[in-house]
Design a protein around this nucleic acid. Structure first.
Length: 593
RNA sequence: GGAGGCGUAGCGAAGAUGGUUAUCGCGCCGGCCUGUCAAGCCGGAGAUCGCGGGUUCGAGACCCGUCGCUUCCGCCA
């Protein structure tokens, strides 16, 4: 190897290198054999270089060139030369030059590939995951993994310069009942006991604040044993940070600064100095989502004022049962939206629990189609009230507040895509603030934490928190980017008494709290500083930056949607001896005959 | 747990209303070719049409079941 060690990479040669003797190492990306002359594109992560075995090359070399198949790993020695003027490839970074080959050494051959190595593969995901090491040879995957590296580097650079300390927290921890299901790790040394893998470093970073490390961050792997989604995996990575002696504004400032640095350094995109803010209530009422995509507008409007003056009984009964009736005006969509296409929108709404989707179209003479006959007498008032004009489609949703908002929100998202209202080239950040601290669980008939139990209630609600938990807003915030929840954070509780009051509201008895979080509560009794922080999803961030819709595209070795790896076939069964060591007995679900 | 979509050669796809030997592109094998860069041209091999059952003279197609993948809901921040 020493003799044929590379002196340059496949992306490094330009016209300036004309005449130099170089050695390249890389993979055969293409091999074009023209009979007497071979053009071979040699590829590595830095780029591609065309190497040429000329017509007057020795027969042995020519034959060797002909034998090079896709993805052979080779070393090549040759002389850089300028391409003839008319042969310059302007699409290629190294397109001005080529390397005239003097010697080829085959470092390794390659079997027939399961799929071609192309810039973006359209091969099926299972094959891509099974041969992930080949999939990652593609330019697209290489670019994304490299982008991910740039992002993590920018994170560290920015936070280190802002006096943050990168500190590791344990990944074998105590299982806690809140939130998602834990991954459990059986203990060999302690029969019947289990560690859990962390869903986040939450408790430990708070303890670091108690220790006085007033600015902490970590690029932390987290685990949740829940079903996968396009933007959710069993294991994922968070940019986790926490600060002491801060208010929400300090955390916003750091996060905004960090995002600006990330985007500027890794994409060359300049973000605004401050991100927009929207209260949770407004986000839900106007966009039907706590993670609204603000790259397009189309806000909801209140349709309640027109309900009483109509015979349309569905909406009347909705309002009687304290529900909401929302209107969504879709400009100019009347002609394009046939009954069939509206039914498709209705199906979207129904997946979010809506019973139906009412509609009408605005014509020159008033309202037409759908439920228009019920509102004919108010046509003018409705159109001017909603700002609807001829050719617009009006969609109406009546349901309980949350169902009305979320289902119409889903319709809005779909319309955004269908009508191409979204400018794909922009990055639209928005802080969603003033989240409710508690959420009423209908089934369990109990209050539960909307985020987690360690978030601070806003001061004005402290008096009434126990009597009336519903309206209590927390010092809680999410950062949303292009309709994805990118980060989530809060000012934490640092007072053990207040923490206990919150546990009480969500029906978490003192004994259970002590049992689970005793170490945290105890730490609060030793001069815990006020603190707060946030955690941002690294995978999602890089996914959005890369313009992809699945975090699998930015994770080197992801699991499939069933939570398995087609490559190593994990999770796998283990042998009896291992189980015995761990004091485990496995009961498989009954096998169907 | 539920709903939709998909499953045809190594890969990507076509295959109205059931009809003889299942089609195309890429890849693979062989040959030709002196400037290509998705090179081109000629020839060849390669498919129990996911699996099981059924309807039929006849099923890739229709029916039932089942498995796998995928997206979404539930779940999860």
């Amino acid at each position: 190897m020493e003799k044929m060690k590379r002196t340059v990479t496949c992306g490094g040669l330009t016209a300036k290198n004309d005449g130099q003797t170089v050695i390249l190492n890389g993979w055969v990306h293409r091999n074009r054999d023209h009979g007497g002359i071979h053009f071979i594109n040699l590829r590595d992560r830095y780029g591609e270089t065309q190497i040429v075995v000329d017509e007057d090359a020795p027969a042995e070399l020519s034959e060797k060139a002909g034998s090079l198949k896709f993805e052979y790993c080779v070393a090549v020695e040759g002389v850089v030369r300028l391409r003839p003027e008319s042969m310059i490839n302007t699409e290629m970074a190294t397109g001005e030059i080529e390397v005239s080959v003097k010697d080829i050494s085959i470092l390794n051959t390659c079997k027939t590939l399961p799929f071609m190595i192309e810039d973006e593969t359209d091969s099926n995901e299972t094959a891509r995951l099974k041969y992930r090491y080949l999939d990652m040879r593609s330019k697209g995957m290489q670019d994304r993994i490299i982008l991910r590296n740039k992002v993590t580097y920018a994170v560290r650079e920015y936070l280190q310069k802002s006096d943050f300390l990168e500190i590791e927290t344990p990944t074998l921890i105590k299982s806690t009942p809140e939130g998602a299901r834990d991954f459990l790790v059986p203990s060999r040394l302690h029969a019947g006991r289990f560690f859990a893998l962390p869903q986040s470093p939450q408790l430990y970073k708070q303890l670091l604040m108690v220790s006085g490390f007033d600015k902490y961050f970590q690029i932390a792997r987290c685990y949740r044993d829940e079903d996968a989604r396009g933007d959710r995996q069993l294991e994922f990575t968070q940019i986790d940070l926490e600060m002491s002696f801060v208010s929400r504004e300090d955390i916003f400032k750091v996060t905004e600064g960090m995002m600006r640095h990330i985007f500027s350094e890794s994409l060359g995109v300049e973000l605004p100095v401050q991100f927009e803010r929207l209260s949770y209530d407004d986000a839900m009422n106007l966009y039907g989502s706590d993670k609204p995509d603000l790259r397009f507008d189309m806000k909801f409007q209140d349709f309640a004022p027109y309900v009483a003056g109509s015979d349309f009984s569905v909406f009347k009964s909705v309002l009687e049962s304290e529900g909401t009736v929302k209107a969504l005006v879709v400009p100019g969509a009347a002609a394009d939206y046939s009954r069939k296409k509206i039914t498709e929108l209705e199906e979207t709404a129904k997946t979010y629990g809506a019973k139906g989707l009412a509609w009408m179209k605005v014509t020159a003479d008033g309202l037409d189609g759908g439920v228009s006959k019920f509102y004919a007498n108010q046509a003018e008032a409705i159109c001017s009230g909603l700002g609807a004009t001829e050719g617009d489609l009006i969609l109406l949703m009546g349901a309980s507040w949350k169902t009305a908002c979320t289902s119409l929100g889903a319709v809005r998202s779909r319309l955004g895509k269908d009508l191409k209202l979204i400018d794909e080239s922009i990055f639209k950040f928005v802080w969603i603030i003033d989240f409710p601290l508690f959420e009423w669980n209908e089934e369990e008939e109990a209050w539960e934490p909307a985020h987690h139990m360690f978030s601070m209630p806003q001061e004005q609600y402290l008096e009434t928190m126990e009597q009336d938990p519903g309206p209590v807003k927390g010092d809680l915030y999410d950062l949303v980017l292009n309709g994805y929840e990118l980060a989530s954070g809060s000012i934490r509780v640092h007072d053990p008494e207040l923490q206990q009051r919150i546990f009480n509201v969500v029906g978490f008895p003192k004994e259970a709290a002590e049992e689970r979080f005793g170490f945290l509560l105890e730490s609060f009794r030793y001069g815990a500083p006020p603190h707060g922080g946030m955690a941002a999803g690294l995978d999602r961030l890089v996914m959005i930056m890369a313009g992809k819709e699945s975090i699998k595209e930015v994770i080197p070795f992801p699991k499939n949607s069933a939570g398995m790896s087609p490559m190593d076939e994990s999770p796998a069964r283990v042998d009896e001896i291992q189980l015995k060591d761990l004091h485990l007995d496995v009961i498989l679900p009954e096998e169907t005959e």
